[in-house]
C-alpha cells in the first residue's frame, strides 16, 4: 500500500470522527429526551431502554415552556417579517441603484451585525423601562428588528446583484415600471437566495439569548431563556425533561439546514465564476 493511500485512509477516519462529533451530541440528547429518569441517571450510558413520551408531554403541558414557545414564535416571526418587508427593498435599491453613499450604507449595516449585544441590551433596558414597555413582546420585536433588518439587507444585496441585468433591462423595454421590475422580476428570480437570507435571520433571533435575558423577566420570556432556567435547577434535576426542552428548542433552526447550506453553496459558486 502506498503512502498516499494510507494517508487518505487516516484522513477519512479523522473526517468520520469529526462527523460523528457533529451529530452524536444532538442524537444523544434526542435519545435522552425519550428516557425515564432512571435510564439517564445510570453509571453506564444506556443505548437500549424503554422509550417514554412523558418528558415531551410534561414539557408541552407546562405553562412556562408553552408561553416561551409562543413568545419565541411571535417575536422571531414578527421581527423577521418586518426585517424582510423593509430589508428586501432596501437591499435591492443598494444593489441596483448605487449612489455615493452605497459603500457607507453597507459598512453601517454590516457593522450593526457585529455590535456586542451586551452594549445595546443595557441601554435598551433603561429605555424600555422608562417607556413602560419593559418585558413586553413589542419591545423585544422592535429590538430584534435591528438584528433581522441588518441581516436581511446584508445577505440580500449580493442575491439581487446576481440577478442578470439583461432580464431587468428587457422588462424595462417592455414597459415595466421600476417597482414592477422589483416585484415581478427581481424578487422571483432571486427568491432562493432571499429565502436563505430570511431563514438565516430567523435562526439568528430564534437562537438569541443575551438580549432576551436582559429585556424580559416573566411575561415575554423566550424559549431559550425558559430552557436555560430549567438547566439551572438544583439537585433533583429532571434530566429527561431538560433534554426534551432542548430538543424542542433546536428543532426549528435544524429545519432550515437545507436552505442554509444551499445558500452557502451558491454564495461561493458564483464567486469563482
Amino acid at each position: 500500500m502506498s503512502r498516499r493511500s494510507t494517508g487518505r485512509l487516516v484522513g477519512r477516519a479523522v473526517l468520520f470522527l469529526a462527523a460523528l462529533s457533529a451529530v452524536f451530541p444532538a442524537f444523544w440528547t434526542a435519545l435522552n429526551a425519550f428516557k425515564n429518569r432512571v435510564d439517564i441517571v445510570t453509571p453506564t450510558p444506556l443505548f437500549i431502554f424503554t422509550p417514554t413520551l412523558d418528558n415531551f408531554a410534561y414539557v408541552l403541558g407546562r405553562d412556562s415552556v408553552f408561553d416561551g414557545l409562543f413568545n419565541s414564535l411571535v417575536t422571531s416571526g414578527a421581527a423577521v417579517v418586518i426585517g424582510a418587508v423593509l430589508g428586501l427593498p432596501a437591499a435591492y435599491a443598494i444593489a441596483r441603484y448605487p449612489n455615493r453613499w452605497s459603500k457607507d450604507i453597507q459598512f453601517f449595516v454590516l457593522s450593526l451585525r457585529f455590535l456586542p449585544p451586551v452594549a445595546i441590551a443595557i441601554p435598551l433596558m433603561v429605555i424600555w423601562l422608562q417607556l413602560e414597555l419593559y418585558d413586553t413582546r413589542l419591545s423585544l420585536i422592535i429590538t430584534y428588528t435591528l438584528l433581522t433588518l441588518a441581516t436581511v439587507v446584508w445577505l440580500s444585496v449580493p442575491a439581487f446583484a446576481r440577478v442578470p441585468k439583461e432580464v431587468e433591462e428587457a422588462a424595462r423595454v417592455d414597459g415595466y415600471s421600476s417597482y414592477a421590475i422589483f416585484f415581478l422580476i427581481a424578487v422571483p428570480i432571486a427568491s432562493r437566495s432571499l429565502i436563505g437570507a430570511v431563514a438565516f435571520a430567523f435562526v439568528l433571533v430564534w437562537n438569541e439569548f443575551l438580549i432576551a435575558l436582559m429585556l424580559t423577566t416573566s411575561d415575554a420570556k423566550t424559549l431559550p431563556i425558559v430552557a436555560s432556567e430549567l438547566t439551572q435547577l438544583g439537585r433533583d434535576v429532571p434530566w429527561g425533561i431538560l433534554n426534551a426542552s432542548v430538543v424542542l428548542l433546536s428543532i426549528p433552526p435544524l429545519l432550515f439546514i437545507g436552505v442554509l447550506s444551499g445558500m452557502l453553496n451558491s454564495a461561493f459558486k458564483r464567486k469563482s465564476s
Binding site: V23, P25, T29, N32, V203, F209, T231, N243, L260, S261
Partner: peptide, 28 residues
C-alpha cells in the same frame, strides 16, 4: 459531510451549551 458539519453552529447556543454540560456531567 458539509451539511453534517454545519449542524453544531445552527443549534441554539443554549442547546449546545446544555448538551455539552450534560455530556461533561461527572456522574452521568
Amino acid at each position: 459531510l458539509a451539511v453534517l458539519f454545519i449542524v453544531p453552529v445552527i443549534l441554539p447556543r443554549v442547546s449546545a451549551a446544555f448538551v455539552w454540560k450534560f455530556a461533561f456531567h461527572p456522574l452521568y
